[in-house]
Structures are given as C-alpha cells and as structure tokens.
C-alpha cells in the first residue's frame, strides 16, 4: 500500500510543479493567482498523503491549517484588487 501512496505523492508533486510553473510565468496576473491557488490546494493534499505515507497522521493538523489559512490570502488579494486598479 505504501507504494500506491508514494506514487500518489510523487504525482501530486508533479502537479504542484506545473502549478508553480504557471505562477512563475503567466500571461496575466490573474493566472499567477490561479497557479498559487492550485498550488495551495495541492499542498494540503500533499501533506495529507505524506502523513499517511510515513505513518504520522498528526500532519493532518497542518493540512487543516493550510486549508483554512490559504483562503485568507486569496481574500486579501481580492481586497487588494478592489483598492487598486490592476496594472497590466
């Protein structure tokens, strides 16, 4: 079973790398945010899967924190857009 979890883990890592690539090089600033958002979701899943892979389920606490907190970052971004007109 660890084999399956390890494979899942590596696959999520690859998806994270793709989201990172989008955030590093994006046509518009919104695409960057989209990449960051995707990276955040995948981070939560990655932490959960790694916790199961290494048999340390207390990692789930950190996954919950990320799921809750990364939303605040997104809301802050929106608030920032309301204040300032986006420059392209």
């Amino acid at each position: 079973m660890t084999g399956v979890l390890t494979a899942t883990c590596i696959a999520i890592l690859v998806v994270m790398a793709m989201a990172l690539a989008r955030a590093l090089k994006a046509p518009t600033v919104y695409d960057r945010i989209l990449g960051v958002n995707m990276f955040g979701t995948k981070t939560v899943l990655f932490i959960a899967v790694v916790g199961y892979m290494t048999g340390r389920p207390d990692f789930l606490d950190i996954a919950i924190v990320y799921a809750l907190i990364s939303f605040i970052g997104m809301v802050a971004v929106l608030r920032f857009f309301e204040y300032t007109a986006p420059i392209e």
């Binding site: 955030a23 990276f39 990364s70």
Partner: peptide
Amino acid sequence: MLFSIFSF
C-alpha cells in the same frame, strides 16, 4: 504571490 508559494 510567489512569496506565498515560497512559504508553502
């Protein structure tokens, strides 16, 4: 935005 990825 990239800093938040850095933190992740």
